[in-house]
Design a protein around this nucleic acid. Structure first.
Length: 246
DNA sequence: AAGACACTCAACCGCACCTGG
DNA sequence: TCCAGGTGCGGTTGAGTGTCT
C-alpha cells in the first residue's frame, strides 16, 4: 500500500512548536473540534501535517492534561500496570487521568525502569519469571491452545456483560481462572480472602479486562495476557500473606 | 570556565489497524 | 472482497538542559 507522503515531502514545518502555532491549534480545536486531523492544519492555517497537530494536541495542548511531576502513587501505578500489561502505554495512560502515553513512556524509560531493576525488585522478578517458565511448560504438556481458552464458560459477549459494574471482579476472575488452571498456585488463590481480589482488580489493575472485553484487535486472549495472570499469581503469594485469615 | 557526559522530554517515524467506498 | 485514506500506537531520536570533572 502506498502511503501519502508526510510533512517533509510536502514542504511542511517540523520540529518544536511555537507559541503562535499552539494558539492557532487551540483556537481551531476549541471552535471546530478535531473530526479530521488530516484536513485540520490546512483549515486552521498551520504549516504542519495532521499527525503532528494530533500529537501536539493530545500530548501537550489538551485542557485536561495534568502537568508537573508524577506523584508516588502514579509512579507505583505505572510500575504495577507495566508489570501486568507490558509496553501498552496507551492502556496504561487510560488508567491515569491527565497523563499521556508519551509522558508515561518517558517516565518509565527515565526513572521507573531503573527502579524495577533494583535488587529487591529483581529478586521478585526472577521468581516471577520462574513461574512463567513453569506454567508455560505445564501448559504445553496439557496441549492447551489459546483458542481453547474461554472466559470461564462464558462467551465473549457474556463475559463483557459480566464485566459490568454490577458484577464484582472476584466473580469474574474466579470463573475464569478456576475453569482453566487447576494448579496448586491457583488453588492457593482460591483460598485467598475476597479482599484479595478486590485489591488485584481494583481500579488500578482492571485495565487488563478493558483490553480483553473491547475485543479490539483481540490480541489479548487470556493466553496472550498470561503475563498478567502470572503477575496475579505472584502477587497472590505476596498478598495472601497480607489477607490470610488471622 | 569550559568541555564532556548524562538526563529529560517533545516530537518524529513507521507500522498496524480501522473504516468507508 | 479489495483498496486507499485516516488514525492510533510504540519505538526512537535529538535538542535543550543539568551535572560532573
Amino acid at each position: 500500500m502506498v502511503r501519502a507522503p508526510c510533512c517533509e515531502k510536502m514542504g511542511l514545518k517540523k520540529g518544536p512548536w511555537t507559541r503562535e502555532e499552539d494558539n492557532i491549534l487551540i483556537n481551531y480545536v476549541n471552535s471546530y473540534g478535531h473530526d479530521n486531523w488530516r484536513a485540520l492544519p490546512k483549515l486552521a492555517g498551520l504549516m504542519r501535517c495532521g499527525k503532528s497537530c494530533r500529537l501536539r494536541w493530545t500530548n501537550y495542548l489538551r485542557p485536561d492534561i495534568k502537568r508537573g511531576n508524577f506523584s508516588r502513587e502514579e509512579e507505583q501505578s505505572i510500575i504495577e500496570l507495566h508489570a501486568a500489561l507490558g509496553n501498552r502505554w496507551s492502556t496504561i495512560a487510560a488508567r491515569l487521568p491527565g497523563r499521556t502515553d508519551n509522558e508515561i513512556k518517558n517516565v518509565w524509560h527515565t526513572h521507573l525502569k531503573k527502579r524495577v531493576k533494583e535488587p529487591e525488585n529483581r529478586c521478585r522478578l526472577s521468581s516471577f519469571q520462574q513461574k512463567i517458565t513453569k506454567l508455560k511448560e505445564e501448559d504445553t504438556e496439557s496441549s492447551l491452545s489459546s483458542s481453547e481458552i474461554n472466559f470461564g464458560g462464558y462467551d465473549r459477549t457474556s463475559y463483557s456483560q459480566l464485566h459490568s459494574p454490577q458484577h464484582s471482579y472476584s466473580e469474574i476472575s474466579s470463573a475464569i481462572i478456576m475453569d482453566k488452571y487447576d494448579s496448586q498456585a491457583v488453588r492457593k488463590i482460591q483460598n485467598v480472602d475476597e479482599d484479595f481480589w478486590s485489591d488485584i482488580f481494583s481500579s488500578e489493575n482492571s485495565s487488563n479486562f478493558t483490553t480483553v472485553e473491547r475485543g479490539y484487535k483481540y490480541k489479548s486472549s487470556m493466553f496472550d495476557d498470561m503475563q498478567f495472570w502470572f503477575n496475579v499469581l505472584t502477587r497472590g503469594d505476596e498478598l495472601s500473606g497480607i489477607y490470610a485469615p488471622k
